[in-house]
Design a protein around this nucleic acid. Structure first.
Lengths: 343, 343
DNA sequence: GTGAAAGCGCTAACAC
DNA sequence: GTGTTAGCGCTTTCAC
């Protein structure tokens, strides 16, 4: 591929041995030179390096990995729960993935991405870990697989999970304090004048359940009625319909909505408008995540911010420490209320 | 990891040889059994499989890959051009990536993701290909690396690129007909009554340049004045400011904007509103992509739809055929005008 | 500072 | 149908 014009006069260099022959040294020396080890004569090293450059040769990482028993690859896996296909396009996870790619690259690791459907593939995590292709794994989202992750964590160190932290759990997790986030959201809704609250989102996802629980803490404390749970899928198509149905059923019985996600909140805003319900006058609305979309809705969304970049940094940092044999604690990040115009 | 209670009484099975010993057969037989090859006694196979299950053993893919000279991994690389960091969060690419992950998984391949900064890393593509870790590569977006990709394509078959198709190019590309898309956009703007057009986006990206060129085709044909190019970064923060500056400078001199991207269009809508310019009354606006956000802006965006799922399918399909040695043509997908309310 | 040799875990001839 | 053997391309003692 990196051939110049003289292609045919020059033998292909397929491996370290070919290069060694050209350089008039042994394979071992080439290996040491290319790996930047100290004990190689400066001249020899230079000769080898220039030869390698000239032939566009780079050592085969699979072979190297096999020999050294490490691959330089971190697995990133996204379990798609009940809500199967659409979750991936969820911008939150995608943004997190982008940051992860940056962080891992920065640390010299490659990223192997896998989306799995736990329902039809029960040993998804073991399979990935056992493949021998990755040095460690980051799980993005617990979905409904909390228990399975716990089990695996007992026997496998280099794993960090993005998700919700439970008292006494065994796997290392980094994530936002969802319950606190839920409290902030409910407090804001109430401060804005709402008293009859609903929660929009699928609470079988543990993170969402925690958000709702936080909101309920506040509702109870303030002596409000129970928060009405409005189960909704994450995929925009289904969500829109479901929201429409919920709204129709609840007409006039609620004045504040806490959406599990900005995406859901944005969709909800559209449906609210379609029904002629003014936000925030008739209904207050708070989202979660503070994705870019939160600033672009009309009116812009009041929401609970998660620091995605910090999350990615935390995930990678903890994973590297675990890779080094350290035992690490989970990392819980503080959410932050961002007041805009919907509540 | 998959150990039950009797952990300590059972020796770890680290490789095929250990398992062979337990099963009372040779390593070769275990290999054949686990690979599902035909010529293995049914009973033997069953014994081996159950033993493997019991011990949570799976063959090491690196070793297998090394031996078979194929890895079962497809590289997906996103070159971040001039517009460095933010492009990744560009929802279009992220959505495409999601679909790619699905398609590749479906075909039994794993996905290795790399983001690269060509400016500081000139041999990004050769490095990835030469790593020995991947069987083929999908490049998402040509960025400003068209020439480099051409060079590599001459010597490396299993590569397919998402991007723009140029007359006579040598690398296999799949992508939307951007020029046609640009034409559709301009036609719509004009049909809606606009006569003084501007294009919002960075035309050093070849895809965007083609969109602008298409719009210019129409402007010329209709005898309109030149289209004013408004260079803008893709990252939301910078874009917002830049758009604001552009709008201030052009006040009253344009009545139609073609945005290179829905994201940009949405941002533009916000800025337009901030300046008190009514859409579509004072200014018509057309986006590109038809991302979910296009339906949620206020008013919803008229845009040019790219079929992302079809794109992902095409990329994977062509790559697999190239992997099988076929020579494939590029695939150009038709864009589609989606009329909503901004033009 | 460098070479020789062993071997990472697996697969694919080639025997039988 | 199964065992044996020879590597895939690299790293790393151990000599010298």
């Amino acid at each position: 591929m990196a051939d110049s014009d003289e292609t045919n006069t020059r033998p292909a260099v397929r491996n370290i041995t070919d290069l060694a022959r050209l350089a008039g040294v042994s394979a071992g020396t080439v290996s040491r030179a290319l790996a930047g080890k100290s004990l190689v004569n400066a001249k020899t090293r230079e000769r080898i390096e220039s030869l390698a450059r000239e032939h566009g040769f780079r050592p085969n990482q699979m072979a190297s990995g096999l020999r050294r028993q490490k691959t330089g690859v971190i697995g990133v896996v996204i379990p798609l729960g009940h809500d199967t296909r659409q979750q991936i396009s969820d911008s939150f996870f995608m943004t997190l993935l982008g940051h992860l790619a940056d962080e891992l690259t920065h640390e010299g690791y490659d990223l192997m991405l896998r989306r799995v459907v736990p329902e039809t593939d029960t040993d998804w995590l073991e399979r990935f870990i056992g493949s021998g292709m990755i040095d460690g794994v980051i799980v993005i989202g617990q979905s409904d697989q909390f228990e399975r992750i716990e089990e695996v964590a007992d026997g496998y160190g280099p794993m960090v999970v993005w998700g919700n932290h439970q008292e006494g759990q065994r796997h290392c997790v980094v994530g936002t304090d969802n319950r606190l986030g839920g409290r902030l959201a409910a407090e804001r809704l109430i401060a804005a004048g709402a008293t009859r609250l609903a929660f929009l989102g699928d609470t079988t996802a543990i993170e969402f359940a925690a958000r709702l629980a936080g909101a309920e803490d506040v509702a109870r404390r303030m002596g409000l009625g129970p928060i009405i749970a409005l189960p909704t899928h994450l995929s925009p198509d289904r969500a829109s319909e479901e929201i429409a149905v919920h709204l129709a059923a609840l007409e006039g019985r609620i004045d504040g909505i806490f959406a599990a996600t900005d995406t859901l909140a944005a969709l909800c805003l559209t449906q609210l408008r379609a029904r002629g319900l003014a936000v925030p006058d008739a209904i207050k609305l708070v989202g979660f995540d503070d994705l870019p979309i939160a600033r672009q809705t009309m009116p812009p969304l009041t929401t609970i911010r998660q620091d995605i970049a910090a999350g990615a940094r935390g995930l990678v940092d903890l994973l590297l420490r675990r890779l080094a044999g350290e035992k690490t604690e989970s990392l819980v990040l503080p959410p932050e209320l961002v007041v805009r115009e919907t509540a």
